[in-house]
């Protein structure tokens, strides 16, 4: 498992993010373009009100600076009073960018100072509070720990299953049959996994451009979206179960009962794991489907193997009691 080093995330990357609906930031750059390669180092934002009024102690300049209606009105007042030294002081700090909400545009003086300092000015039509919650959500996603694993991620009956195993064991073929049976492909071969909120593992393809393609031995590379339709794919999915496919090993002991839960750890999160031996005559896709349904049943509070064993124990006990009763001396 290769844990990725923290990648440099620039303001330009923030603008380039393909975010939809409730995550859209609607940002555009209205000035200081030269500063777009500035790196965002912390997933946080700051309202620079105190800094504007001249108090720079503990000024969190590393964060994204949000200018709302209040800050903009204050800037306007400063400009009217001709206090340009405030801006000069502000832009001595290498802030990643200044974001104006409510489609506000800063005054000329602010523009010029930002251009001179190569600090990007972004604008959005969202309100300050809405932008804050969205930015925090988006940045915490980006700054979350991530890793890339070799495997195939599919969604089966709503359960995100990561098929892992060595090359040539039949992961892609299994996924192909699952897709054929109406399930969904999330990523083939390279699965990028992020740990969101410290407990949820989100998996997705590493690259949008070449995503949802599969390599099947004998066929070559196929486009799953075109062949099976958009219903057969999904952009990302939480990983809820790991199925390790491996060549059948006659000397290995496989789980025959299933009362004990095996787990594996990805990015510090424990995920249930099954080891599924592969050999001719074993229909792996159907086993995976059953595993997915069994996992759903477990989530609903019904554990097949444990319940079965409880019943066996209860039955043995009642048989025992009957035998004791009938074998009593006074009965005879």
């Amino acid at each position: 498992m290769a844990t990725k080093d923290e990648k440099r995330f620039t303001v330009l990357d923030l603008l380039d993010l393909d975010l939809k609906e409730q995550n859209a930031l609607n940002l555009r750059c209205i000035g200081g373009r030269k500063g777009l390669p500035r790196v965002i180092t912390t997933p946080d934002l700051n309202r620079p009100g105190l800094a504007l009024s001249g108090f720079y102690e503990s000024f969190a300049w590393q964060r994204l600076q949000i200018f709302g209606r209040g800050e903009n009105a204050y800037l306007k007042m400063l400009a009217e009073e001709g206090k340009t030294e405030v801006l000069e002081k502000l832009f001595t700090y290498p802030m990643p960018c200044c974001i104006f909400t409510h489609n506000l545009a800063p005054n000329r003086e602010f523009f010029d100072s930002a251009e001179a300092a190569d600090c990007p000015i972004l604008q959005t039509d969202l309100s300050s509070s809405e932008l804050s919650s969205r930015v925090l959500r988006v940045l915490s996603d980006i700054f979350s720990p991530q890793t890339t694993l070799h495997g195939v991620l599919v969604e089966v009956y709503g359960i995100g299953i990561l098929l892992s195993g060595d090359s040539g064991v039949g992961k892609s073929e299994t996924a192909l049959e699952l897709v054929e049976r109406g399930h969904r492909l999330v990523a083939d071969d390279v699965v990028e996994i992020r740990c969101v909120n410290g407990s949820i593992l989100m998996g997705q393809g590493a690259n949008k451009v070449i995503g949802h393609h599969m390599e099947i031995r004998g066929l070559g590379i196929i486009n799953v979206t075109h062949l099976f339709g958009v219903g057969a794919i999904r952009d990302k999915k939480q990983i809820q179960l790991v199925c390790g496919l491996e060549e059948w090993d006659a000397n290995k002991v496989y789980d025959r009962i299933g009362t004990e839960e095996m787990t594996t750890e990805i990015l510090g999160v424990r995920v249930p794991k099954l080891e599924i031996p592969v050999k001719p005559g074993r229909n792996i896709p159907i086993i995976i489907e059953t595993a997915a349904m069994n996992e759903r049943l477990k989530k609903m509070g019904y554990h097949s193997a444990q319940e079965f064993n409880q019943n066996v124990l209860r039955w043995l006990e009642s048989e025992n009691a009957r035998a004791l009763y009938f074998n009593r001396d006074d009965y005879l």
Partner: peptide, 29 residues
Amino acid sequence: ASKYSSKIWLEKDSDRINAKSIMGIITLG
């Protein structure tokens, strides 16, 4: 890579992928 029994990886920056996987190698970009 498939001719050898060893595990083989290719690494670009911090991305490490299995050298026996076509999609993996292409994804490296």
